[in-house]
Amino acid sequence: MILAIASGKGGTGKTTLAVNLAHAFGRPLQLLDCDVEEPNGQLFLPGDALVEEIVTIPVPQVDESLCDSCGECGRFCAYHAIVSFGAKALVFAEMCHGCGGCAKVCPQKAIREIPKRIGVVEKRKSGDIVLLTGRLDVGQAMAPPLIRAVKECLNQNMPAILDAPPGTSCPVIVTIRGADFVLLVTEPTPFGLHDLKLAVDMVRELRIPFGVVVNRVGSGDDRVHVYCRRENVPILAEIPDDRRIAEAYSRGNLIVEALPEYRDLFADLAKKLLKAGNGGGG
C-alpha cells in the first residue's frame, strides 16, 4: 500500500502525521520525504545516511559549429529554456524541464543532452523505517524530476508513506500520482478550508481515494467539519490543538513517544488506512 500525505495549505502537519503514523504502523515500512525543497522527516527519524545518490536531469548542450540558427528548438520549448533566432541557440539550463525535445527536433543534430545535478536522494534507516529523503540543491527550481527519482527508489513489496510538499501544483501531483490513498491534512481555519477545497478538487481529479485529518482541532471553528459533512469526505482523525504537541515537535520528538496518550489516535488511524487500502474505500 502506498499512502500519500498532502495538504493544500503549508504547515498543517503533514510531516508530524507522516512520521508518527510511520511509527504507529508498527511494521517495517518506507517513508519517502518528497518535500524536496524543505525535507525535514529526518529530524524526527534520526539515523545515519546510508547512501546518497546524486540526481541529474538532462539539459541541452549546443554544438555551435553545427547550429544553423533555424530556431526549431526554441519554437518547440514551452519553457523558453532554449532560444534561437538569427543567432546560435542559447540554453537557459535552470528553466529546462529535461524533456529532450529540443535535441529531437533539431534538424542539424547540433544538440546533445548532458546531465545537470539538481539534488540528491538520501537513504537512511531508523528502526523499522526506511527513510528516503529527496533534497533539492539550493538554487534549483525543478522539484518534480527529483521527486520522481525519490519514488523510483520505492520498494513495491513494502508499504510506503509519501510526505508530499504543500500546495496543489506539479510537485504535489508527481508525489501523489500512483498512491493508493491520500490523506489530506488541514486545520479548522478559513485558510485551512480554502486550501483543503483545492486539495480535494485535485485528488478527485486524479481519482485517488482520500480522507481528511484535521489538525489543531479546537483552535479555529467548525467550517472544515461542515464542509466535509456536506461533501461526504470522511474525517479519519482529529488531532487536538495541544501546546505539548508543538513543544515535542520543536524538539524533534515523535508525539507517539513524547505523549503516549496520543498513541491510540495514530494507531486507530493506521488501522482505518489499512482497511481502506485493502477494501479500496474512501
Partner: peptide, 9 residues
C-alpha cells in the same frame, strides 16, 4: 517564468 527571454525574443 521566462518573461525576460520571451520579451527579448
Amino acid at each position: 517564468q521566462g518573461a525576460g527571454i520571451q520579451s527579448a525574443e
